[in-house]
């Protein structure tokens, strides 16, 4: 199984939609790699705190956000845009159904946390590194100052099987 976790980047907003994750104009691409430079290109936060070209996003393996991440279009391109930028975990309060399914279908993780736990993650001193223990359904986030936060999460058992199989295509090809 893949290793999950690493440096985290934070986006403090609800309802980030798939047009913001990867704009429709890039849906004409037929390779995943072509999406790489365009991740979150159209995302603007009101306070101007997000820059798609920042180092934070380029170094990150984990994206931490708020509720209803990935709403809108069904485009799996949104997941691939994360994947080709080496982001293999998204942590949030909740996900749009299709986006969440697309993540597990690709064998990568969408982790749901309680809002209080998310607040604790957002409060950690950057740069944050997140370790994930899939077996124990537990994660630890550690800030630059060495202080850390731990919390548990739960995965749907079927989603866990998909991650174990390396995605839905591999799973379905064996089973059906």
């Amino acid at each position: 199984m893949k290793n999950f976790g690493g440096i985290a980047t934070f986006i403090d907003r609800d309802d980030i939609n798939t047009d913001e994750i990867i704009p429709a104009k890039y849906l004409t691409e037929i390779t995943k790699q072509a999406l790489k430079p365009h991740l979150l290109e159209d995302l603007h936060l009101e306070d101007g705190s997000f820059d798609p070209n920042s180092e934070g996003i380029q170094k990150a393996s984990v994206l931490v956000t708020r509720s209803n991440f990935g709403c809108g279009s069904s485009r799996e391109h949104a997941v691939w845009a994360l994947e080709v930028n080496d982001i293999n975990v998204v942590i949030g309060e909740s996900f749009a159904r299709i986006f969440r399914q697309n993540m597990f279908n690709c064998g990568i993780l969408a982790v749901e946390l309680a809002p209080e736990d998310l607040d604790r993650l957002f409060a950690i001193e950057p740069e944050v590194r997140i370790e994930i223990d899939l077996e124990k359904e537990w994660l630890r986030a550690t800030g630059r100052d060495g202080k850390s936060v731990e919390c548990g999460f739960s995965l749907n058992p079927f989603d866990r099987k998909l991650v174990g199989a390396g995605g839905w295509l591999a799973y379905a090809d064996q089973q059906y």
Partner: peptide, 9 residues
């Protein structure tokens, strides 16, 4: 609605 992997399957 589904994503591309679901569509492939």
């Amino acid at each position: 609605g589904i994503g591309t992997t679901d569509l492939e399957v």
